[in-house]
Design a protein around this nucleic acid. Structure first.
Lengths: 352, 352
DNA sequence: TTGAAAGCGGTACCAG
DNA sequence: CTGGTACCGCTTTCAA
């Protein structure tokens, strides 16, 4: 059984295809007028056949798809879903659909997706890219062809972008920890070579130096993106002879793994170990103890990105914009003063 | 700047459009052969122009889109992403793209999405529908038009579906709790009128009856889908004069909210209160204490659903299949024996 | 007020 | 072995 086409409707209503198109779109092309009678006949015929316009044909004809593509690096991290949610909301408000694609942390797939979306002649593109150098040429090419593109959490010259001021947030976070007396602070770095991650890592190093503390590369644990990876990275830190008194996780998701590692090592958080993260995912305030983190509304970022795309869609010629989304330190129960006995042991050790 | 079309390539290579199509698709339409020389010229011209085929045009011509649509009820619940992840993996293995749409728990939006996907002439559809009665007519209509459709967590006559045997799992869960001596068991019911939720609710009631316990409707707290809602529903239960000694949450996500409510009420889990959930989301084993839950591989379900769609795409005429994904009780740290003093108080109360 | 027809970009048949 | 061309379904100009 085949779906009815405009022609079927036209036949049934006893009019031409053009008339059907006029009626269904309200599009009277300037000065075309339709008799109320014909109008009713057409609508009735369409209803009777269950006619649905063929979006692909419309798309080919009009050159627009009514879709905005969103590429995220990893479907497992709630942070990206919050961004996607913001994008979806905003995009829908303007009558578009969001098409969400997952790169599954695979650089090759990232490029492949961008290309596929371009072939689909998607109306606009929002990219959260981990391995940006690989896709940069493609992005620049698309931008030259007037495809509205927004980069999130990153930036390329002459292309709209949304970023958050995480380096500041990260510094505040480090100040918070050093201010609490922590001198041995571990880092869980579980992402690809993203500038976003790099920014946080730099802030970590910088924060230590600001407090006059040495940067010990052994305390930086590189790991994968799963919660299990976070658990293991934290375990490695906690198994060290001189374990850190605080752990900074590159994101909340991994921090939850770290919290559990502390639990399995019979360490109380925050009494024996402070754990902090980034992103403030919704679960962060519900874990035990609630996670100290750097908040930046992911949904907000998504919305900002969507707005940029939609704006460029309307007025393509304006200059590239950089939107900054603020972030703030959220102090919850997972961070506290450095444990006294460890501090003591440390000074003994230092004295030796 | 406009993107080059096949015609541009043809001109540059000094051949016809047909030849370009043949070369690029390897499609020699049976017995068409191309000189190595022409072939090279065409490829070179395509490369030089950065030619990318127009997927919309291809789609219109071929009648296929190379996309499988997936509709999920709520982007905030990790359970659904795991399903989406499974679908994505499987669908990609077969050279398709997954198009993910979020209904945001809105029944009207659900129907709207299904219709939009149908208009896009998507190749196949995987639906996780909350308010199924609203979309059922549309689904049946599409199925009649030979659109491959799979329903997940639900079922409609003559349509492929994937379900998990949660009612069994739920009964095991209830046995587990009653076996531990719990007599006052609360329920957090934070989903729409989904049969899936209903199934779990029925199992809750049934499980109580099996243990010879009364069903107290006041112990069933209906609430919204956010983690905050879970927190509040649990709080309401815990604020009762005679609070439950165990709480069954309709899903893990809300259970995390419940855990936090217990924390805020200074109740230790599981000593003072047992909390159990459903789904076994990845975070479930990392919260403190790790969540007792009913596991069913969501990713597995997604994969099964994708396989069904792809299979029907190949062979449309086979009979509708129902795939059951097994599930099992996973006992972790969040459930334990009913607290003695409460049990005591209960019996005193019963004796009065 | 309505209808005929020219494309949008590709594909695949048929003729050369 | 290659080129011409009809068609996928819809929109929109132009003519009637």
């Amino acid at each position: 059984m085949k779906r009815p086409t405009q022609l079927d409707v036209a036949k049934l209503a006893g009019v031409s295809r053009a008339t059907v198109s006029y009626v269904l779109n309200g599009q009277t092309a300037g000065y075309v007028n339709i008799t109320e009678e014909t109008r009713r006949r057409v609508l009735e015929a369409a209803r009777q056949l269950g006619y649905q316009p063929h979006a692909v044909a419309q798309s080919l004809r009009s050159g627009t798809s009514n879709m905005i593509g969103l590429l995220i690096p990893d479907m497992h991290n709630p942070h990206y879903w919050e961004i996607a949610y913001g994008v979806d909301q905003e995009v829908q408000r303007s009558g578009y659909e969001m098409m969400l694609l997952n790169a599954a942390l695979n650089p090759a797939r990232e490029l492949q997706i961008v290309k596929a979306l371009a072939r689909r002649r998607i109306d606009g593109l929002i990219l959260l890219v981990t391995y940006i150098t690989d896709v940069q040429p493609e992005i620049e090419m698309l931008a030259r062809e007037n495809m509205p593109i927004v980069i999130v959490g990153n930036s390329i010259r002459d292309i709209d972008s949304v970023r958050n001021s995480f380096s500041e947030g990260a510094l505040l976070l480090m100040q918070h920890l050093t201010g609490l007396g922590h001198r041995r602070i571990g880092m869980i770095f579980g992402v690809g070579q993203t500038p976003l991650g790099q920014e946080r890592l730099d802030a970590y190093r910088c924060g230590l130096q600001n407090a006059g503390l040495p940067v010990n590369e052994d305390l930086i644990q590189h790991c994968g993106p799963t919660i299990e990876d976070g658990y293991e990275a934290a375990s490695r830190l906690l198994n060290r002879h001189e374990r850190p008194t605080a752990i900074v996780s590159i994101n909340d998701y991994l921090a939850i793994g770290a919290q559990h590692a502390a639990f399995d090592h019979h360490l109380r958080v925050p009494d024996d170990l402070s754990i902090v993260g980034f992103d403030d995912i919704d679960i962060a305030s519900y874990v035990t103890p609630p996670l100290t983190t750097v908040h930046s509304s992911a949904e907000e970022m998504g919305r900002a990105a969507a707005k940029l795309v939609l704006q460029r869609l309307k007025t393509p010629q304006i200059e590239a914009q950089q939107v900054m989304v603020a972030c703030q330190l959220v102090i919850r129960g997972s961070s506290g003063p450095a444990p006294a006995h460890v501090a003591e042991r440390n000074s003994l050790h230092d004295a030796r």
